Computed example of a mutant assay.
Amino acid sequence: MANHKSSVKRIRQDKKKTLHNKYYAKTMRNAVRKLRAMTDKEEALKLYPSVQKMLDKLAKTNLIHKNKAANLKSSLACYINKLG
């Protein structure tokens, strides 16, 4: 266990931040999964901007890599375009 006040505080902060990051990462994965499960093009087009915004925010805060966000947005856009 840590011996210094600063390291104890850092451990406390890390736990809180980890929980915060896990929530947003899981929310993002669920949103992508929900969008990929859609079969109606109009509904998918309505949901896509919010998913895109979420991916951009997570990439900006380094929760996910910027290229991963770009790849996900691109693949989702292709998926939506293929819907009939």
Rank of each mutant, 00 (worst) to 15 (best):
M1C: 11
S50H: 14
T27M: 07
L19D: 05
R29W: 12
N67H: 09
Y79A: 06
V51T: 08
I11T: 07
L83C: 06
L72I: 11
A69T: 01
E42H: 09
K57C: 04
A70M: 11
N71V: 09
A31W: 00
K68T: 15
A59W: 03
K22M: 04
H65I: 12
K66C: 14
K17F: 02
N81Y: 10
K53S: 15
Q52Y: 10
V51H: 02
D56K: 00
K53Q: 15
N71A: 11
A37Y: 03
K41P: 01
D14Y: 13
A59G: 04
L83Q: 02
L47F: 01
K5E: 07
N67M: 08
K68G: 13
H4R: 10
L19R: 05
M1N: 13
R10P: 01
N3W: 11
H20D: 14
H65P: 04
K82L: 12
E42C: 14
R36Y: 14
L45C: 09
H65D: 14
N62G: 06
Q52K: 12
K73A: 01
Q52F: 10
Y79T: 10
K57R: 09
A25P: 03
L35T: 09
L19V: 07
S6A: 11
R12W: 13
Y48M: 04
H20T: 11
K9S: 13
A37S: 12
